[in-house]
Amino acid sequence: MHVLIPVLHRPDRPTGVCRHGANLAQGLAECDEVSKVTVIIGAWQTHYFAHGFGLTSSKIRLVDVDIKNSSIGRNQWFLTDLPKLANRLCPDIVHLSFPLPFVRQWFNCPVVATIHDLYPYEYPQNFGFPQVWFNQWFLNQCINQSDGLSCVSKTTLEALKTHFPKMDQRKPLRVIYNSVENNSGQSNPPQVLKDQQHRLFILGVAQHRKNKNLDLLIRAYNALLKNNKIDSETQLILVGSPGPETSSLHQLVNSLDLQDQITFLSGLDDSKLNWLYEQATLFVMPSSTEGFCLPLIEAQAAGCPVVCSDIPIFHEIASPQCHYFDLNDSPLENLITAIAEALVYPESRKPFINTAFKQEITSQQYLDFYRCLLN
């Protein structure tokens, strides 16, 4: 079986969508039934796909596309050039690693898509207006044109059914979790932290979007410092791609005079992320909504204690040892209390990976899904 995976995406540094595409390709390449995996990327993604994701299988071929990295340029390429490239490469199935606009009749084989979340409908402020209307249209068009859809969680599947009623009567739907392995590979500190390797830190990993509530984490961290609930030398390290909230987050840090205490990082390779997960005193994820949340799973896989918001997706994917806090009533006070308690009564640093997230499990589920469509 030959699987073609378009992962051509805007960021010039690794993101969750890119990691999903890379993990999907690596997992499929390890299956005997799969003879070839072709991964389509933008020219600006070549470096981190070639060197950052460990795509070592001889079955995987990276095809880079040299186009203008703009919204118009990418979406035009998806609509007109992707089907031409796919039909020339003759895969048995095309698996879109994220929703993108396409016309099904222009492809000679089945097309499936991974649905990560329903943010364009559930959290339009992540995109702003009128941009969110285009995001909604792209998502709508992809969902309706695909031959089948894989959702990264039960929570995402339920959201899909809410916004697209009776979709399960029209095409195959599956819940197939993102794959996560206990990465015991190389571990190196980010360059900016090389001189501070022995300093304690709390870690957050999330793109700068409204639903991630990073401002809440910053305020809680500030209160913990002011009230001597944490060591004054403890840093807060926030890893994530810039987004709509970047400016306001930096303004908040400046207003609280925390420039020397909070470090913003982005685009880290796996070795540096591994080091952060392994060394962090605590991992905090205060999101209002998520489709899956790969960083939380990666933190658990590294044995890092976790504090997270009390929302359905985290109960679905997180370890039973997580410290939950309520976002509805006095969220700031609740987060402060949860962090303080987690530091006083830390869980053992024992790696936790749900077997449903293991690569051999998810890869087999994808193969079964593909066979269903091909038959």
Rank of each mutant, 00 (worst) to 15 (best):
I336D: 01
D368C: 12
V205P: 08
I230D: 01
P14V: 02
L332P: 01
E360F: 15
T162Y: 14
D310V: 09
T46D: 12
H20M: 02
K36N: 13
E158S: 10
T56L: 04
C151F: 12
T234N: 07
F283P: 01
L296G: 14
F201L: 06
W137E: 03
T289G: 12
I313F: 13
D66R: 14
G291T: 03
L236P: 00
A220P: 01
Q300Y: 11
K226M: 08
Q125G: 11
L249T: 05
Q196V: 02
P124Q: 13
T337V: 13
M167K: 12
L160R: 05
L85Q: 13
L332D: 04
S330E: 13
T263E: 06
A113E: 09
T46E: 15
V37C: 03
I176C: 03
R170C: 04
N334L: 01
T156V: 06
L256I: 03
C293V: 01
S58T: 10
L160A: 01
D231G: 00
K229V: 00
C322L: 05
N375W: 07
D168E: 14
L55P: 08
W77I: 04
N375G: 11
F201Y: 13
E122V: 06
I297Q: 12
L82D: 07
T156H: 13
S266Q: 11
D368R: 15
K272M: 12
Q207T: 13
C142T: 05
L367M: 11
I41S: 06
A159T: 06
E181K: 10
C142V: 08
V344R: 15
Q136C: 10
L252N: 09
S363K: 08
L282Q: 08
H47P: 07
Q359N: 10
I60N: 12
L225Y: 14
I202T: 00
P312R: 11
G73D: 09
D92Y: 02
V175W: 11
L268E: 07
Q105P: 02
R88K: 13
A301D: 07
V65L: 05
L373N: 09
L343K: 15
I60R: 11
S179K: 01
A29R: 09
A86M: 13
Q45S: 11
K84F: 12
I115L: 14
Q125I: 13
C372P: 02
Y221Q: 02
D368I: 07
S288A: 15
T15E: 07
Q235V: 01
Q235K: 15
E347A: 15
N211T: 02
S348T: 14
W77H: 10
P14H: 00
L203Q: 05
N126P: 06
S309Q: 04
P242N: 14
F49H: 00
P91E: 06
P312C: 08
D329R: 12
G267W: 00
E316F: 05
D310N: 14
L373D: 07
P130I: 00
L4Y: 06
Q76S: 15
G128H: 04
E333Q: 13
V63N: 15
T38S: 14
S248G: 06
F369I: 06
G21M: 02
Y121D: 04
Q235G: 09
P244F: 09
E122W: 08
D81Y: 04
G16H: 10
D64V: 09
L24M: 09
K210V: 07
I115C: 10
F264C: 08
R19P: 00
Q364L: 09
N213Q: 11
A342D: 04
M167S: 09
Q207Y: 00
A356K: 15
